[in-house]
Design a protein around this nucleic acid. Structure first.
Lengths: 232, 232
DNA sequence: TCAGACAATCTGGTAGAACCAGATGGCGGA
DNA sequence: TCCGCCATCTGGTTCTACCAGATTGTCTGA
């Protein structure tokens, strides 16, 4: 039971127990006692948090939360830790996602190999089974989109996109809670797949744009609705 | 002298002293002795390396290098550590940069504020001084491009772009070693600035595309020339 | 000769104590 | 009220000590 991953828990605890004004967190010794682990464990975890610029350690002074980081790594960690993500950050990530994936659709239409198409077909088949069973889509959606990015044959691109999908995955059940949305999303995926198959880059781009537009407005609406005064 | 940042040095050392086949690195105790620090220091640094997926620690077995990571964080660290970057990765990063910044130019043309324009003017003035003095451009180039991304008002976007500039900065002296290239680059920057000022998104995009095209072919030529058989 | 069992050794994981020196904050004196 | 001193706290760093599984090498028996 000691092999649990401290990172998310510590992150959550730091935000829960930091001083409102200064952002100063409990000391390493206090944290160690709180989690029932050694100070070394805490320091190791804090080193990672510091590398992600989520926290700043000032020698002989204390540990301070930095201005909320907007790195995708940090956002993914926040999501994992169950921390509320800044709605603005989420919307920004969605905008970035559109930038990435519309271009990815174009590149994939030129570079996708048979292997990519086979993978896409498998994912689409899995989606179909889900829908037929009346179950909501889950990682099938992410897999479909990431496979297209992979088809660009740009591993840096793929890695960057892969990270922020960790942010969204936890929220997919909300989005796909509506069965009709699942069906429409799947239908759009089929259209994109067809366009890629026909190597029609312009069509693939246009369809991806429309597809993401739907998701974007959904999130925008959701975020506008729950304007948290506490946020920011 | 003990406050040096172990991260780059350790990273370099791990790659230098790892077993060719298994990727297994020296043990924590050996590393501690080699660097003259405590095992705790080594473990703290390894935790960061593991979070970046550069290294994998297997309990009671050893530390192993993972397949070379393509995350921009890892690439930045490699550059800092003086490790040879996989030419393919660099080219991929350049491609991603084009995707980002062409779109950034369009968004910036719509969203840039007076503050952004003032910053851009300052950067351009600094560039001019450099060129007049016969000095090569340096961070001015990065600052110009990053300010445009910042003008999109998307902090996630800005953060993502900011990271991979850490990769390129070390190589700028090579690119700008040629004075004529500095002058041309500066002229193109002026054109982009004008287009943004006039809120002409299409022109800004086109000019940014042309501007980055030059850099891209430069790097492509350079990389094609030094095909390292050892790489990949 | 070789395969299998056993034991010494190595390794990461974790805890805990100890010391340093600068930052901090409260108390007392001017 | 304000200034300066000092006890206390804090991160930075090192060392020692165990644990238990992985690894490696040796020895034994067939």
């Amino acid at each position: 039971m000691t092999e649990k991953n401290l990172l998310p828990e510590l992150t959550a605890h730091l935000y829960a127990s930091s001083a409102a004004e200064s952002g100063r967190t409990p000391s390493e010794r206090e944290l160690a006692e709180h989690f029932g682990v050694s100070r070394g464990q805490i320091r190791e975890t804090l080193a990672v948090l510091e590398a992600m610029r989520i926290v700043e350690r000032r020698a002989k002074s204390g540990i301070f939360l930095t201005a909320r980081s907007a790195s995708v790594d940090a956002m993914a960690l926040f999501a994992q830790a169950g921390l509320p993500l800044d709605p603005v950050r989420i919307y920004e990530a969605v905008e970035l996602r559109k930038i990435h994936e519309i271009k990815a659709a174009e590149l994939a239409s030129q570079r996708a190999t048979e292997e990519n198409f086979v993978r896409l077909e498998e994912i689409l088949a899995a989606s179909e089974r889900r829908i037929a069973a009346g179950e909501p889509l889950a990682e099938e959606d992410r897999d479909f989109h990431l496979e297209i990015v992979r088809a660009t044959r740009n591993t840096v691109f793929y890695n960057v996109c892969g990270v922020y999908y960790a942010v969204g995955l936890r929220r997919l059940p909300i989005y796909f809670g509506d069965p009709s949305r699942c069906a429409q999303s799947h239908a759009e995926h089929l259209g994109i797949y067809d366009a890629l198959r026909r190597r029609d880059g312009n069509l693939a781009q246009a369809l991806m744009n429309a597809h993401l537009q739907g998701a974007e407005s959904y999130w925008k609406g959701l975020l506008d609705a729950r304007v948290e005064p506490a946020a920011e």
